[in-house]
Amino acid sequence: MSNEKHHIVPFRIYVWVLLALLLLTSSSIAITHIELREYTVAGALLFAVIKTFLVMYYFMHLKFDKPYIRLMVGAVFALFLIVIIITFLDYLYR
């Protein structure tokens, strides 16, 4: 058990991920200055989702962990998504 090799993530990967995150942040700020009306929210949220993926995959080590942890995280997000869909089905079709 304790002989298990741990993957040591090199620093430069973290620097690249940070740069990507900063780029996505400035993009999400830039997109709100363009007149897109309802697509503005969708755009900003899309950037947030990509950032979440980057943070979870690299910073939270999901990429290097055993697959079952990824599966658990996926299941929780699926549950959350279902709750959102059900809530909005209720409000949109009242």
Binding site: T25, S28, I29, T32, H33, T40, V41, A44, L45, F47, A48, K51, T52, V55, M56, F59, M60
Partner: peptide
């Protein structure tokens, strides 16, 4: 502690566009 800190970061990633970026 890193996992916890990243969670705090993740929540802010959503708080920021939802509260500050509505124009």
């Amino acid at each position: 502690s890193g996992l916890y800190w990243h969670l705090v970061d993740l929540i802010w990633i959503f708080l920021f566009p939802l509260f500050y970026l509505i124009t």
